[in-house]
Amino acid sequence: MKSTIFAAMLGLTLKDKITLFYSLIFPLALLIGLGMYFDTPEYQEKLIAGVTALGALFWGVQGIAFQVYQQRSRGVYKLLMMTPFSILSFILTVTLARTVVGLAINGIILATGLLLFGLTYSIVNLLLFTGLLLLGTLCFTALGFVIANLASNEGQINSLSNLLQIPMIFGSSAFYSLEQAPAWIKLTGEFFPFAHMINGQTAALTGQLTEVLVPMSLLFLFTVLFVVLAAVTFRWDSRTSFLAIRRQY
C-alpha cells in the first residue's frame, strides 16, 4: 500500500511546477552565470557543490512546507489520523517522494555543471557526492515538514524558512570562502546542516575522501533529528497549537 501512496505523492510533487521551476532554473542560472565568469576549476567545483546544495535546500524546505500546509488546511490530516496508517510512515513516504524528485533536479544541475565546465570525476567521487545530495535533500525536506508543523499560516512558512535558510547560506562556503569571515559567522554555519553538506560535497569533488566522513555523519544526524522533530510536532488540525496532545506513534 505504501507504493500506492508513494506513487501518488510522487505525482503530486511533479505537479508542483512553481517549486520545480524555482529549484531548477535558479540554481542553473547561478551555475552558468558565476561559472562562466569565475572560470577556474577550483571555483567551478565549489560552485557545483554550492548550487546543488542550494537546489536541495530550496526544493526541500519551501516545497514541502507549502504542500503540507495546504493539505493540513484542507483537513486531509484529520482523516489521516483516523486511519491505521502511521504518521511516521506518512512523513517518510512524502519525504522520500520529494527526495526522489529533488535528486533528479540536482542530477540535471550536476550534469549541466560537469558538461559546461568540462570536469571529470571518478565513480567513487560521484557516488559520495550523490550520497551527500541524497542525505541533504532528505534532511531539508524533513526540515520543511517541521516548518510546516510550526507555522500557523503561509506568511509564517516564508518567515521561518527565511530565518533558517539565510544564516545557513551565509554561514557556509557555498559561494565564497569563509577564511576571512568573522568567527561568529563560521560558528553560525556549524549549527546548520547546509555548511556540512557543502563541506562534504566539496571534499567529495576535490578527492579528499577522508574529509567526507565527518560532514556526512553530521548531515545524517541532522536528518534523523528533523525526521523525529517532524513526527513529534506533526498536527492534523490547522487551528491547534503544535504542542497540543496528539496520538503518538
Binding site: 501518488a8 505525482g11 503530486l12 505537479k15 508542483d16 495546504q70 493539505q71 484542507r74 483537513g75 486531509v76 484529520k78 482523516l79 483516523m82
Partner: peptide, 12 residues
C-alpha cells in the same frame, strides 16, 4: 469517517 468539511489531497 466523513467530516463536515471535504478533505481531499489538493492536486489529486
Amino acid at each position: 469517517v466523513q467530516l463536515q468539511d471535504t478533505p481531499f489531497f489538493p492536486g489529486m
